[in-house]
Every structure is written in C-alpha cells, then in structure tokens.
C-alpha cells in the first residue's frame, strides 16, 4: 500500500475519533455546568477544555452556553469542526481506497455540522449539535466495519482510531483528576459519560462512584471499548497485522514498544498507580503513544530512502 494512502487513512481516522471524543467530553461537562454554579466545576471545565486544546477560559459569570461558540471556530484546527474538516480532507485524498459509503457518511457529517454551526439555534441547542458528532462517528465506524476488506487499509484506520482514543482518555482522566478532593459524584458521572462508560461502569462496580474505581475502570478494563487498556490492545492487534502484511524488518522496534506498553497495562494494579502518582503515570502512557506514533511514521510512512535501500 502507498505510504501516502496509509498516512491519510490513519489521520482520517484519528481526526474523526478526536472530534467524537471532544464532542462527548464537552457534552457531558456542559451538562454538569447546567447544575448550580460551583467554582470548582468552572475550573474543572477550564482544565478539561485546555486539555482538548480548546483554549477558551470561562469565568464564573459566563452563561454555560455562551462558551460553546468556540467549538465551531472554523479557523481553529483543534476545534471540533476543524477536526472534522481534517478528517474529511484526508478521506478525500484517498477516496478510491475507501468505500463510497464511508466517504458519503463523512461528507454528510461534515456538511451537517458546518451547516448547523452557522445557524442561530446552534447556540441554544448545543447538545443536539454535539450529538451529531457522536452519531456521525458511530455510523462511520459501522460502515467501515462492513464495507471494506479488513486488510491493510482497515488496520491503519483501526490504528489511528485507537491510538487517538487511548491518548484522549488519558488526557481527560488527567484533567478531571487534577483536584480530586473537590470532585463530587456529578463530576465522576460527567467523566464516565464523556467516555460513554456510565452504564458499563455501573454493571461492573454498581453505582458506587469511588474515584479509584472510576479511574481503574477507564484505565484498565479489558473489555469495554472506551478504556485505555482496550484501546492499546487494539493498537497492538492492528500493528501486528500490519507488520505481517508488509513484511518490513523495521517493524520489530514497534513490536517491542507496543508490547511493553500493553503488558504494563495488563499487569499493573490500580493501587500501585494511585500510590505513586496518577498524573505522571498518565503522562508516561501518553508519551509512549506519541513515541509509537513517531515510530509508525518512521517505519511505514516517511522513512529515509537509505534505510530501505540497504536491504
């Protein structure tokens, strides 16, 4: 497969996941902001939006919905609209490689959200607007699952999605847990909702919202798709499939990196993590994700010519 094509598929998928994730995080936090104002919640909101790269601080006097205007910010690459536009742009570069259903889904989502964002009622119905992203992303994943062969292209799409998801969950965990002493049940519900995990969490831990349980679930649960461990396992699966399809010797470095990361998540105990420092633990995972991303780029996408010619 052409490196350029693999790169576009990967980024298409990453950007879509980013838009989806950011929309869910904003939606759940917006919901908790509607409850009677509380200083800690405003500062939590600020630290969360900062972690999403949406730099717009809210002061105590702002009405919750006024801050949604920045979601759109069409010029801003890291705004949700910017992510969707980037996902679509990457998809359009490889339209021949994806199914027409996938393209249509993404294209429709893009047109829906851009059209809605310019309408007046957008400000008054942010939830409906934000839910467009979630529904669009689900639909896209659905057609992707069933309309293209699960070959190399598909694995690059999976890789992009899950590497982005692992990173996103770490980021939102980190931001939410920055001042655990102020957090109340509403905040934990908000966090779980933003990972679409509230129902799944209750099934495992019942309704008792202990901080440690929430963290453990989002970090280490092996079966729920919106957890760090699950995502990393999917990343490993995609990477080993890609390695065996492309047969490059240089993939071994990547296999070692993902192997280390995956086993650390599989065998760590939440008590160990909490006893040390959650923040630095999350930072380390995110760095490993970044390193993994770089390695993938160096081995499959933008390798120096000599590295390959020598073989």
């Amino acid at each position: 497969m052409l490196s350029r094509v693999a790169d576009s598929l990967y980024w298409m998928s990453r950007y879509l996941e980013r838009a989806d994730h950011n929309a869910r995080v904003l939606e759940s936090n917006y919901n908790s902001l509607l409850n009677p104002a509380k200083e800690s919640r405003v500062s939590r909101w600020n630290s969360i939006t900062r972690s999403l790269g949406l730099d717009s601080d809210l002061s105590n006097n702002d009405a919750p919905w006024s801050l949604l205007s920045f979601i759109a910010q069409p010029g801003n690459r890291s705004s949700i609209l910017g992510s969707i536009a980037s996902a679509r742009e990457n998809a359009s570069q490889v339209r021949e490689q994806i199914s027409s259903e996938m393209w249509e889904r993404l294209n429709r989502l893009y047109h829906e959200v851009t059209a809605t964002s310019t309408r007046a009622e957008f400000g008054s119905e942010p939830i409906r607007f934000l839910s467009l992203f979630r529904e669009g992303a689900y639909a896209f994943h659905g057609v992707t699952e069933s309309t293209i062969p699960h070959g190399e292209a598909w694995h690059f799409i999976q890789l992009g999605k899950y590497i982005e998801r692992a990173d996103g969950i770490c980021a939102v965990l980190d931001a939410s847990y920055s001042s655990p002493e102020d957090a109340d049940d509403l905040d934990w519900i908000g966090l779980l909702t933003s990972c679409s995990a509230l129902d799944a969490f209750r099934k495992v831990h019942t309704a008792s919202l202990k901080a440690e349980c929430v963290i453990e679930f989002l970090l280490l649960d092996p079966d729920f798709p919106h957890t760090v461990r699950y995502s990393i396992e999917r990343v490993q699966y995609a990477l080993s499939a890609i390695a065996s399809l492309t047969l490059t010797r240089h993939s071994r470095r990547i296999e070692r990196m993902i192997g280390t990361l995956r086993s650390s998540l599989a065998y760590v105990q939440i008590e160990e993590v909490m006893a040390r420092d959650l923040h630095s633990y999350l930072i380390r995972i995110r760095e490993q994700c970044k390193a993994l991303h770089r390695a993938v780029h160096e081995v499959y996408i933008d390798y120096p010519p000599e590295a390959v010619l020598e073989n």
């Binding site: 052409l2 693999a6 190399e152 890609i242 499959y300 010519p305 010619l309």
Partner: peptide, 21 residues
Amino acid sequence: VEGRDLLVHDNVVYVRTTSGL
C-alpha cells in the same frame, strides 16, 4: 500514484509504500 509518492534515488524511481521503497 501522485508525484509525492515517488522518490528518485541514484537514477532509479521508487514508489514509497508501507512495505518499503
């Protein structure tokens, strides 16, 4: 392919793929 997929090395043209040049 597009131009950016191609790479010329020592007067030989290669296409950049995930399996190498």
